[in-house]
Design a protein around this nucleic acid. Structure first.
Lengths: 379, 379
DNA sequence: GACGATGCTGAATCTTCTG
DNA sequence: CCAGAAGATTCAGCATCGT
């Protein structure tokens, strides 16, 4: 079992000593000034659940005249769109400074604020990777019957710049977990309620917009690796911290209200981290070491002079000693020649070309696994 | 059966004579200048499908090397966000002038443009009533496996001012059509394909972004009454006109391209208006919800680290936090790993793998019924 | 005609490494 | 930084064709 502490030691870039003790802590204060305590390029992912700028215009009552406990806290009040926009720009810029260039940022919001946040993200040159819809299984009904039931919230997933190409996305794991079809942009989760919802000594909810842990788990399993650092600049009740600890990720939280900080600390303290074996992330071919075709020839798995064909034996080529293929006067790499014989621009020669194994055609890709198994044993 | 002509007569405010002959026509031209032909406060609903301002890199090929026919039309090209914003402000203001104070406006977009549109709507003092998610049953996949599949588009439904309170919303009709539960903000429809998709004489699609009629039908059934006037400032292939005529509403279209105008005219000409009783068939059907394995993990019904076995306990595997299974150095989806441990090509992991429920082995498929019970309430 | 195999397509900001 | 090469990557629905 890999403990959270040993994960820290394994991470070359981040260590508790170098981090100024901010790792796995909650920093009290306004998020822009609090983030000044963090060095540049120090976090892998930002998850932000900013104030929604709700404008309900008076109390909301259910049909039975009971009062709906709406979000009307002081921290959620802004004088104008301009004030909200300035606030948004400030915290986004502060987050980008501490975010690694290959990191990504998540923001969640509703129609009250998400359009402003999205437009500002684009204005600041963030690059939107996806917008994600969280569909709620159990949303609050629309009591007035004058609109559609507000049954979803929107997340934006963005790279800090248009050139950010090396971001983490655990595509293969998500696909395998999703019954072998790729994960879509619409997710279904219940809202946070029942035992998961933090309550104070009076039985009242501690935080008005506590997010479900399943939502954060999906986000972290998709866009982080074990040992990564997740920053939450609006920490609230600490869902980000609790999920990060459970999944073997590090967290940094920023929060202004002492009540929330106290509740989050106690909550995270009680979390039991999962063991190392359960945290391994499934990877696909992309993560495998590269093996060049001539390695197969040099190792004798394929002999010079051998004939390769496509799966239907419509095209054939001869293997040359230098690791290239030749066919009808043309020669080139397995990829180039595969493309050429098909009249295409590109081709994956590993899956296109097959060898004859006692009458059965098998892709030459199968032979790479032999080489890779050897490489794995040698370290 | 209500004919279109009698609907006109029933409408006190709009008559063909007073309308200057623009009712149920397509006006050729740029939408801002074309709308100058319409009087103030003359339409009940605006449906706008503006250019999305896609910013495509190079050509995109499917894994089989076929080329994706991208939206690279000139009308979707803008020099900058500033240019797109100015364009957006101009058409929104032109639409608001002709929109009745108690009318409403719909805009559809994707993450490329919808955040800008939404923020500008708010800046112009439109009042957002809902954001609506159109979930596509059959979206295009993400071919490179570097992001989530882009499986939805977003609509914004707004009132022209914060004081617009008398807008039409057929709450009870929608609820009745939705198995007596409130209509939610997430809608499911297939993309427009098959016989509904307009093709030219070469068999090519007439318009690259033709919207499904079911989507427009939902919109009109929700926010208009028979005889109302629906303006579409980006008329394209005329889906708005076709659905308006079928549902006994009036339309006005604005379109720049003669090709689209010709196709839309012929299309609308062929439409047979329906009677009110047949309209419920347009609202779309719900399918049995698909539940993937990761939903069980994320919901806590199966915990990471849990051991699954086959019915006779001959094979076992451990559940990982990413929603995959691992066994003897191998990892994969419940289906892949089930096949692998049995030495088979395929396996239904839902019936193969079992969990231990107090000494009794039960197939993990049983746990899906719990989730489906939750989802059933969503409609 | 029925049925399976094969092919085509849809609003898409869709790779990564080496030299 | 750029050019070039390696090589990884798709889901649902509909149309067409062959048996």
């Amino acid at each position: 079992m890999v403990s959270l502490k040993s994960s820290v030691v394994l991470s070359a870039e981040i260590s508790p000593a170098a981090s100024g003790r901010w790792l796995d802590t909650i920093i009290k204060g306004d998020c822009v000034s609090a983030l000044e305590k963090l060095p540049d390029n120090s976090v892998d992912v930002v998850f932000a659940d900013p104030p929604y700028n709700l404008q309900l215009g008076g109390a909301l009552h259910r049909p039975d005249q009971s009062l709906v406990d709406a979000v009307d806290d002081a921290w959620d009040q802004f004088a104008s769109f301009e004030a909200y926009d300035a606030f948004t720009r400030a915290w986004l810029l502060a987050c980008r400074r501490v975010l690694k260039p290959n990191g990504t940022l998540w923001v969640i919001g509703s129609y009250h604020n998400i359009f402003r946040v999205g437009a500002i993200l684009q204005d600041l040159n963030f690059w939107i990777l996806n917008d994600i819809v969280w569909r709620k299984t159990n949303p609050m009904p629309n009591f007035k019957g004058r609109r559609f039931q507000n049954a979803h919230e929107t997340l934006i997933w963005a790279s800090p710049s248009a050139k950010g190409k090396g971001y983490t996305f655990n595509y293969d794991a998500l696909k395998a977990a999703n019954d072998d079809v790729q994960m879509r942009s619409d997710w279904v989760f219940p809202i946070c309620s029942g035992g998961e919802r933090l309550k104070d000594e009076n039985g009242d909810k501690v935080h008005p917009t506590q997010k479900p842990e399943a939502l954060l788990a999906r986000i972290m399993m998709a866009s982080t690796r074990p040992g990564d650092v997740v920053l939450d600049p609006f920490f609230g009740s600490g869902t980000t911290g609790a999920v990060a600890k459970r999944l073997g990720r590090h967290y940094v939280g920023v929060e202004r209200e002492q009540t929330y900080i106290d509740a989050a600390r106690a909550r995270i303290e009680a979390v039991e981290p999962l063991g190392g074996a359960t945290l391994s992330v499934m990877t696909g071919k992309r993560a495998e070491p590269r093996v060049a075709f001539n390695v197969l020839v040099e190792s004798g798995l394929i002999k010079p002079g051998a004939i390769l064909t496509d799966a239907r034996r419509r095209h054939s080529a001869i293997v040359r000693a230098d690791g290239t293929l030749a066919s009808g006067g043309e020669a080139g790499s397995i990829h180039r020649l595969g493309a050429k014989v098909q009249g295409l621009d590109a081709c994956n020669g590993w899956t296109f070309w097959h060898y004859d194994d006692g009458g059965v055609l098998r892709p030459i890709d199968d032979l790479r696994t032999v080489i890779r198994a050897d490489m794995a044993r040698m370290g």
